[in-house]
Amino acid sequence: MTNEIILEIKDLCTTVGEEKTPILRNVDLTVGRGETHIIMGPNGAGKSTLGFTVMGNPAYEIESGKIFFEGEDITDLSADKRAVKGIFLSFQNPIEVPGISMRSFLKSSLQQITGKRIKYSEFNKTLEEALSLINMDPSYVDRDVNVGFSGGEKKKAEILQLLVLRPKLAILDETDSGLDVDAVRTVSQGIRAYKERYGGTLIIITHNAAILEALDVDKTHVLVKGKIVETGGADLTDEINRNGFEKYTDG
């Protein structure tokens, strides 16, 4: 079965910094609605860059190529416009915003994205539902955004935002790194809920197979030195977990 295409990356080349260090080299990627794609690759391969580029991070320069979302060219859109269109990026290192609570941050974020005023009662319901899906203590949302959160709490808070904002496409950048076994289970529970309840589409950047256990993976892409060197199904994930990246990096 072929799904309607939600994201299409065509021949994308990106660089970073004043020296224009090349990161991504001619990347092509097509993702269908409701699918789950895994991006794997050794450190420094450009996995995070791929996520940042799809989410419009101005630190990365697009030298050539195009990004289409739901058939529309979004290559030149700013990050907030992409968020409004329905793209979400879970950060590897979420930023702290002192002075504003997670609750009021999420509410105004949701209002920005939907363009609608949301009633407190309605918002609180959404929030409580999201909190319970990942067993998160409600007191977290009254703390300032990510301030004083442990690494694991920050990652969980990103998944909480995912479940509140319910984007069409979520890119999860190493959401599982630095988490203990229980936390990985909670986070993957949240990801599964996003997929099953809200029909979400996922691009998951990871080193780790544990987070994928409860998910049906449609495609696995191996990114090495800025290039997608192989694309396969769920079995490719298993193979890499067994054998690593040696066969792609040697020579």
């Binding site: 989410m55 419009g56 991070n57 101005p58 630190a59 700013s78 990050a79 907030d80 416009k81 992409r82 968020a83 409004v84 979400f88 990026l89 950060f91 979420p94 930023i95 915003v97 941050f105 105004s108 974020s109 949701l110 920005q112 994205i113 935002q161 904002l165």
Partner: peptide, 17 residues
């Protein structure tokens, strides 16, 4: 820039951020 970008990914335009 990082903070502004983070907020933009959550839907705020630059001025609102």
């Amino acid at each position: 820039d990082e903070i502004i970008y983070y907020l933009m990914t959550r839907g705020f335009d630059e001025e609102a951020a």
